[in-house]
Design a protein around this nucleic acid. Sequence first.
DNA 1: AGCAACGGCGTTTTT
DNA 2: CGCCGTTGCT
Length: 778
Amino acid sequence: MKANYLDELNEQQREAVIHINGPIMIVAGAGSGKTKVLTTRIAHLMRNGVDAFNILSLTFTNKAAREMKERVEKILGGSEARNLYIGTFHSVFARLLRAEAHRLGYPNDFTIYDTDDAKSVIKTIINELNLDDKHYKPNFVYNRISAAKNSLMGPEEYQLDHLVQQEDMRANRPLIGKIYDMYAKRTFKNGAMDFDDLLFKMYILLKTFPEVLHKYQHKFKYIMIDEYQDTNPAQYEIIKLLGAVNENICVVGDDAQSIYSFRGATIENILQFEKDYDDVKVVKLEQNYRSTKSILNVANEVIAHNKGQIEKNLWTDNTEGDTIKLVRTMTDNEEGKFVADTISEQKLRNHYDNRDFVILYRTNAQSRSFEESLRRKAIPYRIFGGLSFYQRKEIKDYVAYLRVTMNTRDEESLKRIINYPVRGIGKTTMEKTIVLANEHNITMWQVLERARELGFKGGTVEAIEAFVVMIKSFQALLSTHNAYDVAVAVGKSTNLVKELFNDKTTEGLARYENVQELLNSIKEFTETPDEEGELLDKSMGSYLQQITLLTDADQGTDENSDVVKLMTIHAAKGLEFPVVFTVGLEETLFPSGMSINTREELEEERRLFYVAITRAKARLWLTYANSRYRFGNLVQNEPSRFLEEMPEKFIDRSYAGGGSVRNAFGGGNTSGWSNSNNMFDRMQKKTPGQQPSQPVTQKPAAKPTFSPATTHVPSADFTPDDPAGMEPGMQVEHQKFGFGTIAAMEGAPNNRIATINFPKGGGEKKIMLNYAKLRIIR
DNA sequence: AGCAACGGCGTTTTT
DNA sequence: CGCCGTTGCT
């Protein structure tokens, strides 16, 4: 244990850490050691007698939660940190609701609908109401409903609220309230919650059941909230309820980095915190440890253009560092090329690794030109964002089977699989099923169960009955087998896996691999001890709820993979990189054309720019293109207004990459500047044929966090041994991770957990022996 | 029932 | 431009 953990803090940090009881607000400027303060504070609480079980810490990503736990463990030693309740608002509440949802009439194994699922339900309802989905766009309606829930407004209130109704009338969409009402009823009938429900229903639960509120008020005696500037009213009210008894609430945030108002976050929460409680301790962390003076000065000056912030003065002891480079290119493609070239150059000149670079953009769609240029130069990269692994069709299909197995009320999933793979339950049958379900006021599944009785005939009734029997056989397996075995059985019985296996097209192969990856992730889930709380819930239901909440920031835990990262600025929140490229600094793109109509919107864009700048530790490039393709046609853009807000002193506007040194700002003609024959290109050309025929580029696809780095082919005679005989020092073989050595053993005798070092399987893994299949070598 | 061709639309940002 | 959903054909 580190005895001197307080010595590693500056005065303000220490002040924040040693404050134990009563509300405290930590205003933490960018790079001011916020995470360190949070983790040290948790450790300090525990050192001073607070039980880890009584600490709730809410973070912005699951990855942040995991890291936090590790860091606390490092400070304290031992494994007490395992008992902390750390996670995102959504995942923590999902877990609590898993224990309590029945009180609200939901199954505890409720399904969590992602945005696509939710929009699909909405679209169904719009069609049922005979409304035009061109006018009532599901997307628009979804956002309206989402906003309502985030401000804790239910369907009834929504339809009665004058202001809201006026807005809908003015938008010529008066029936949104009606759709909302039906949507709420439908998802409830489906036993499903969407993302916003995880907050909304949590609030309802605490409001409705005093004994539940009481229970959690006393469980969570100490509450910490990271990124408080990005919380919404629903989150605010829940925290208010949970913290009401002990008032040991610690919020950490930076109003200058509030960038999520589009999903209901309100900066008011942090601005008002001082008024919410008596005697709020306020600590400001103003020393930046991350960036050079140049970077920080530019950031400070940019954000000064916003009005009304919490007063603070962010400063640094770091060196002045390089100037910030401002670069214009002719087109978006040249922008991509410039960035790739510069990365090559910087690697040589300053000995950077790929992992030191990040490319930040405003919209996901901008990634393309950078992908191409990086691929061309064989620079490995990884894109964060875009379509997640779990949104892929083949994965959603597979998961839909698992969901229905867990929760037969889930119609969205049921409709997805009822005739996939084809089993003779076509459109007519499905429609009839829906009609019957409505008529008898039962679920679709119950109609299927009683198909014969309800008048289905011939081949149809046989097909339905076979389907019902199959799903029930999966359900029966749940009590005797772990989630992985059930999933495998599902793949076999449905022919899902075989069907994909027989598809020898490239896409078919990729889909097959993705499904294997899904199975791997389930396997790893069942075998890895739970790091997020005291419950070792390894059930299928727990798995399904968890994967829906995984985000892009959560993956890419493989810190050791040496790749350039590409992501939106939103996704980069909380991260830092030695070298940052912020690209696409053009009017209508950044600031976004959608956000230049009010001062509030524009200020949020500026905060976003501030976040982008402050990600950089040592070097920062800002680029923009004269023209770029948007929606298929070439458009001209002015340079971003933000560029004019930066202090000249720290900016190098003359650095224009391939040629022109003049006139980085002016419009006009720069023809001839793009004959890119700079040194990096030449270097690249010097080694023809030396490039790997297979580019090292990682698959941009988001993969589950828990997938192994390498695949091990098990020995032919692989048979699992009885885990009872396993002890530290033994050599074992794992079907996926390969050969390894048992480093340590812990856990109760009937639930032993081994720490095993797999040299080729991704290093040290914790494995629950009850679930893992291991072969003893010696 | 399954596939090809076509057209329309979209880009903020994400749990 | 590229994706998605719809249409219309077989």
